[in-house]
Amino acid sequence: MAYFSSLTPVFVAVLCIVLGFLLKTFLTKDKVTKKAPKSEPNPKPWVDEDLQDNTEINPKDDAEEDWADSESDVLRVPYSPLQLSEDDMLHCSQQFFVLMNKRRSVRNISSKPVPREVIDNIIRTAGTSPSGAHTEPWTYVVVADPETKHKIREIVEEEEEINYKQRMGEKWVSDLQRLKTNWVKEYLDTAPYIILIFKQTHGIHPSGKKKTHYYNEISVSISCGILLAALQNAGLVTVTSTPLNCGPKLRVLLQRPGNEKLLLLLPVGYATEDAMVPDLQRKSLEDIMVFI
């Protein structure tokens, strides 16, 4: 009995160690299982993976020497704003609203040529947009070559058919039925120009190092809004297109660098004489503005 009595503490200690190891192993497996559940369908299959690049802040996983230092201060100059009377302000604001309220998404685009100088001015206007730390993280690729436009159409229609049949889901497709849209994009051939707007996830400093582009997607989106206004002001039409998962193929086709991601695609030209658009009503001022 004395022998077994002397072994008891040792046995208990060993047993505790074994049980502790088994418990730790079990908890670790359970933790891993919770972290990596079985693969499930993407709850948002319509999200363009090419734009999910986590570039809105300075990446921390790259070596510091890869990124350029902050640039020198910018010279400040006097600002000379446009001087208008209150009556002129009211008139201009009303006229601009009337102009922009006529803007519609038009899919019937004529092949009638548009002067290149007009497009140049429109892109210049889009380039006046504000941007994070004035990094101007946008590239506007204007395509006029018929062969390239047709290749763009082939890429877009191939992916858009998959979008309509698989990625977008029944509800989205059902919601679009009343607008009679589909994956066929004839206007990509007929429009005189296709403007593809790329956001630059980072820039390249003259030293060859990377340059951080803060809020690059928001900055480029603001620029796109100004571009749409400039097109409307020039009497041209377009339809905003965000073809899912076309970015990589179009980037290769247009020989754009890897730091550029396709954000928007716009066919641009005149509306055809028989162009039709849905009879839609916009929300009232009371529905979109809260005045406090």
Results as ranks from 00 to 15, higher is better:
P278S: 11
G258E: 13
V114N: 07
L179Y: 15
K209N: 11
L263T: 13
E49S: 10
I195N: 02
K149L: 09
C92Y: 14
R167D: 08
M89G: 12
T33A: 15
K283S: 11
K112D: 03
F4I: 12
I162N: 01
K199H: 10
K261C: 04
L90A: 15
M276S: 13
D87K: 13
T125I: 13
G258H: 10
D30T: 00
Q232G: 05
N108D: 12
L27T: 03
E56V: 05
E186D: 14
F4H: 09
H91N: 14
R251A: 05
S39K: 12
N216E: 06
L236T: 11
T212P: 10
K44Q: 03
Q83N: 11
P81R: 10
K60R: 13
F97T: 13
L266A: 05
E117Y: 02
P267S: 07
S174Q: 11
E71N: 13
A229H: 00
G203H: 03
V47E: 11
N121W: 04
I57L: 07
I204C: 04
E65W: 06
D88G: 08
V14Q: 10
H202I: 03
T139P: 01
K171E: 06
K38Q: 08
G127F: 04
K24Q: 12
D274V: 08
K149N: 01
V277L: 06
E147C: 05
K35D: 04
Y140P: 03
N259F: 08
A126C: 01
E117W: 00
K34A: 06
G20V: 12
G208N: 06
E217L: 13
D274F: 07
K210Q: 05
F198G: 00
E160L: 14
S80F: 15
L280Y: 15
K29G: 01
H213T: 01
Q255I: 02
S131H: 01
K29S: 09
V141I: 12
E161V: 09
I155L: 12
L84C: 08
L19V: 10
D61W: 15
C224F: 07
A63T: 05
Q94W: 05
E40T: 11
Y3E: 03
G132Q: 02
P192R: 13
I152C: 03
T212L: 09
S284A: 12
P206H: 07
Y214H: 08
I122D: 04
V106I: 10
L22E: 09
A271H: 04
Y140N: 00
S219A: 02
E147V: 15
R256C: 09
L179N: 01
C246Q: 01
T25F: 07
V12D: 02
V141G: 09
Q200F: 05
K211S: 12
W172F: 06
K31F: 08
E40W: 00
K249C: 02
V237G: 02
L266F: 08
D279K: 12
K209F: 06
H213K: 03
D175F: 02
W67P: 12
V74T: 14
G258D: 14
L285P: 00
G169L: 03
L263M: 15
D48L: 07
R124K: 06
V156F: 03
L266R: 04
D66Y: 09
D88M: 13
L19W: 07
S93V: 11
D287M: 09
T240Y: 00
S174H: 09
L227T: 01
I197H: 05
S39G: 11
V74I: 15
T8C: 00
E154H: 08
V12T: 08
Q281G: 08
V220C: 08
P37N: 00
R124S: 04
P146S: 00
M276T: 14
I218N: 01
